[in-house]
């Protein structure tokens, strides 16, 4: 090892030690309000429900055993379907948007970013109720259809699966656009010219040159959309008429309606495991898989 390396390492160490102190308040906060509660939830998940909704401090596995029931499998499957379709739609819609923002001039770029950010910063309830009002009975769409004499089912139109997907996608689109945009902003567009010069078609350039080089951004976007969608229940309830049970619904019901805290805690722990597993899986599939990018070295 050269003396330069030694000096660098020592410098880094001093730097690290200095950084430790400013980090203490945040770390304490994290420990008390995130780590400890999670630990409590984990402990609770092994307890028994008391007769009147309390907790009996008696260790057992039964809460986790209940999770293997087909009912909960179906619920899990519904959540997974919703989360993955939202993530896919967000990617398909978000990529062109991010592309447009990254390639347009500086002035327009800021305007477009603002246009994505404003609805993002608007309260979720306001946005969801806006859709409800728009599509609901006595809303402008239904009024228009009625005055044009087009027959429709007012209940079907105001609450359906398409509306749920629409609401989810609009809500989570910014989570996809921002990471994609920041990846595309760093992307060297000279590579596109080089690929053109080497006779690559536009499709090849998009799939073999651009996507592989922004794959970390794609993975980040997918994770940021997928993870909250797995626990989402407000939008499906409001726009879908609470016809489908989702993980989020079960969770709130166990805690608030049935007052079965230990089982709720077990579902929470299961969801937390999912939310650790799926980001890992997405990263692995999108970033780690070299075969996806036509790497056919001999």
């Amino acid at each position: 090892m050269s003396s330069d390396d030694k000096r660098d390492k020592r410098g880094l160490k001093i730097f690290k030690n200095r950084l430790n102190w400013p980090g203490v308040p945040a770390f304490t906060w994290f420990f008390i309000f995130v780590f400890l509660p999670t630990l409590i939830v984990l402990v609770l998940s092994f307890m028994k429900r008391g007769t009147y909704g309390g907790i009996e401090w008696q260790g057992q596995w039964e809460n986790y055993g209940r999770l293997w029931d087909t009912t909960y499998f179906k619920i899990f499957w519904e959540s997974l379907k919703l989360a993955s379709s939202t993530a896919t739609l967000c990617f398909l819609l978000g990529f062109p948007v991010a592309w447009a923002i990254a390639t347009v001039g500086q002035r327009w770029r800021n305007i477009l970013l603002l246009m994505i950010a404003i609805p993002f910063l608007t309260n979720l309830m306001i946005r969801v109720y806006a859709i409800k009002v728009l599509m609901g009975q006595d809303g402008p769409i239904q009024w228009l259809l009625a005055s044009l004499g087009i027959p429709f089912d007012p209940f079907q139109l105001s609450q359906n699966k398409a509306l749920v997907i629409y609401g989810m996608t609009t809500t989570y689109l910014p989570f996809m656009v921002f990471p994609l945009y920041s990846a595309l902003e760093k992307f060297d567009f000279g590579l596109v010219e080089a690929a053109q010069d080497l006779r690559a078609s536009s499709w090849t350039i998009a799939t073999k040159i651009i996507l592989p080089n922004i794959r970390q951004g794609v993975a980040n976007g997918l994770i940021l959309v997928f993870v909250p969608c797995m626990g989402e229940f407000v939008i499906p309830d409001l726009l879908g008429g609470a016809k489908v049970m989702l993980l989020g619904n079960v969770l709130t019901e166990q805690f608030l309606k049935f007052r079965h805290w230990p089982f709720g805690a077990a579902i929470s722990c299961f969801l937390i495991m999912c939310l650790l597993f799926f980001p890992w899986l997405i990263n692995r599939l999108v970033v780690g898989n070299k075969k996806l990018y036509g790497e056919k070295s001999p």
Binding site: D188, E193, L198, N213
Partner: peptide, 13 residues
């Protein structure tokens, strides 16, 4: 074919 100023080699290949 062109040789670019910053080479523009594909970093993932």
């Amino acid at each position: 074919n062109m040789v670019f100023q910053r080479y523009a080699l594909f970093p993932h290949l």
